[in-house]
């Protein structure tokens, strides 16, 4: 009981202290609204733009999820190809590393120019491009490091490659896969926002942020940041919940 109170009360106190400190900092320095926002400015900002927050938040959410979904499908396929074939791994790995080394912020204007006006497509594409890499790498490593005995156990009974993949290789890579997915979900979110902020006439929370920026509306900008953090947390814990269901076995009992 005591432990539960502590687990709940301590973080709440920490958040409250943080907000009070922030409020005090703004008040103490006398920063005006076009320079900085205080926590007390946020509820009015949310209230004023509530319908926008809902519609823009939805835009950001669905694009991130679609981009992430494509990244999972493509990344898993790529990982399977690289995990099963030595030759393909040697061929694709340098390409993949090179592609990943490019800071995605530089890709944003290129994509935006290439597919002018197709804002949904652009955003999903960027979310996808930025997030498939960790998935591909984790799946390929998971598959290629499968100990030969695992294969032999089933192969000696005459099992097909497909059976070995479904019964052993795939479930065995799930912990690595979810580890990568947690990274990917954050990355995809960054991708979506990059595109939304940079694109002219963009939509989504990124665009809302940008409109706050052009008007020096700090309360709006900070409210968007809070909304983004909220969405990011929701997505992250959604993945954590999936991980608990499908790869919960990988968690060692404490101690």
């Amino acid at each position: 009981m005591n432990k539960h109170i502590r687990a709940f009360v301590v973080p709440v106190i920490a958040v409250v202290v943080f907000l009070l400190f922030w409020e005090w900092l703004v008040w103490f320095n006398g920063w005006p609204r076009f320079k900085m926002a205080a926590p007390s400015d946020l509820p009015p900002a949310f209230e004023r733009h509530w319908p926008l927050f809902l519609s823009m938040g939805w835009q950001t959410l669905w694009r991130t999820v679609v981009g992430l979904f494509l990244a999972v499908v493509f990344g898993t396929l790529l990982g399977m190809i690289m995990g099963f074939s030595r030759t393909m791994r040697d061929a694709l790995y340098p390409l993949l590393v090179g592609f990943n080394a490019i800071p995605k912020a530089t890709v944003v204007p290129i994509v935006a120019l290439m597919f002018v006006g197709q804002h949904d497509f652009n955003t999903v594409l960027l979310a996808f491009m930025i997030s498939f890499f960790p998935i591909a790498v984790s799946v390929s490593i998971g598959l290629s490091t499968l100990e030969p005995e695992y294969r032999d156990i089933l192969r000696s009974l005459g099992a097909s490659q497909a059976t070995i993949f479904w019964k052993i290789a795939l479930p065995k890579t799930l912990p690595e896969f979810f580890g990568a997915l947690k990274v990917a979900v954050t990355l995809a979110f960054i991708g979506t926002n990059l595109m939304e902020i940079v694109s002219p006439h963009g939509r989504g929370l990124g665009a809302l942020f940008d409109s706050g920026r052009t008007n020096s509306d700090f309360p709006l900008m900070f409210a968007v940041l809070i909304a983004l953090a909220f969405l990011g947390i929701v997505l992250y814990y959604f993945v954590v919940a999936l991980e608990k269901i499908f790869a919960g076995w990988a968690e060692r009992a404490p101690g």
Binding site: Y150, P171, A247, A250
Partner: peptide, 8 residues
């Protein structure tokens, strides 16, 4: 030598 049991 490695019992290779499936953890899940």
């Amino acid at each position: 030598q490695n019992p290779v049991l499936l953890e899940w």
